[in-house]
């Protein structure tokens, strides 16, 4: 296991505030995630080294465009609002905090879009953020099925998103740490540092939701099915912003 993953696990995954079936379920799912999290770290390191060795600044723009496509302002509004709507009014006493988290995450994610745009602006790749509206590379979401799955959560279960939070937001954290360990460019570092705390927050939301709410087989099933999907061999790889090819 790579040291970056081990450090992440010790600091953020294993410390646990509850006992009970939710925690037991999360730790079982964690075991399933570990090989892919480890692979992600190695992949992000390799991508960062390749980018550095390219001898060109184009990798910065490619990362920023990829990031904008995945978490640009409109994509973020769409994705996070589906979660707000996944809680029916009669479930609100139980799950209003999911809505609060998503309202906050809407704001986090649109800011992340702005951070990617800042790389493009400050790197001299564009003069105005609006130019990105005409660039398909900044608007093509990597793995539509991942985002479409989020859009289905209002029809599945309010807790289903916890699977994406736990598995994918952790990848964002790991990818950021791995990339920061290699790339010394100020623009890229600023962008990654500026969003790392919020990515960790989103991972924590997944951890908390599973520990605190996924207490019965009925509540665990939709989350486990999301893990099943994400852990398929053809599962989404990280976005270009984090060193993936997509």
């Amino acid at each position: 296991m790579h040291a970056i993953l081990k450090d992440f696990l010790d600091k953020w995954v294993y410390p646990t505030g509850f006992t009970g079936p939710g925690v037991d379920f999360r730790l079982r799912q964690t075991e399933r995630c570990l090989p892919l999290w480890d692979k992600l770290v190695l992949q992000a390191l390799k991508a960062a080294e390749t980018d550095l060795a390219s001898g060109s600044d184009e990798y910065k723009a490619a990362r920023a465009r990829g990031g904008y496509a995945a978490e640009g302002p409109f994509m973020s509004l769409k994705q996070m609002s589906t979660q707000i709507l996944s809680v029916s009014t009669d479930q609100q006493p139980k799950y209003i905090d999911l809505q609060r988290m998503r309202a906050r995450q809407i704001w986090d994610e649109v800011k992340h879009g702005q951070l990617h745009a800042d790389v493009m602006l400050r790197g001299g790749f564009i003069k105005r953020e609006e130019e990105l509206m005409d660039d398909p590379r900044a608007n093509t979401q990597p793995k539509l099925s991942y985002f479409g799955m989020t859009a289905m959560f209002p029809h599945i279960h309010p807790l289903a998103r916890a699977g994406q939070h736990y598995y994918n937001e952790s990848m964002a954290c790991l990818g950021i740490t791995a990339t920061l360990s290699v790339i010394d460019d100020d623009l890229i570092r600023h962008q990654l540092h500026s969003q790392s705390a919020e990515e960790l927050m989103h991972f924590m939301e997944g951890k908390y939701q599973i520990d605190a709410y996924a207490l019965t087989p009925e509540d665990q099933k939709p989350i486990e099915e999301v893990f099943d999907f994400l852990l398929r061999p053809w599962a989404p790889e990280p976005s270009r912003a984090l060193g993936g090819a997509a």
Binding site: D10, K11, W12, P15, T16, G17, F18, T19, G20, P21, G22, V23, D211, A212, L215, T216
Partner: peptide
């Protein structure tokens, strides 16, 4: 934060039951 080991020992955890 992150929490030191001694604050998340078993006896410190909050029980969650269905």
């Amino acid at each position: 934060v992150p929490p030191p080991q001694e604050v998340w020992t078993e006896n410190k955890r909050w029980p969650r039951v269905p």
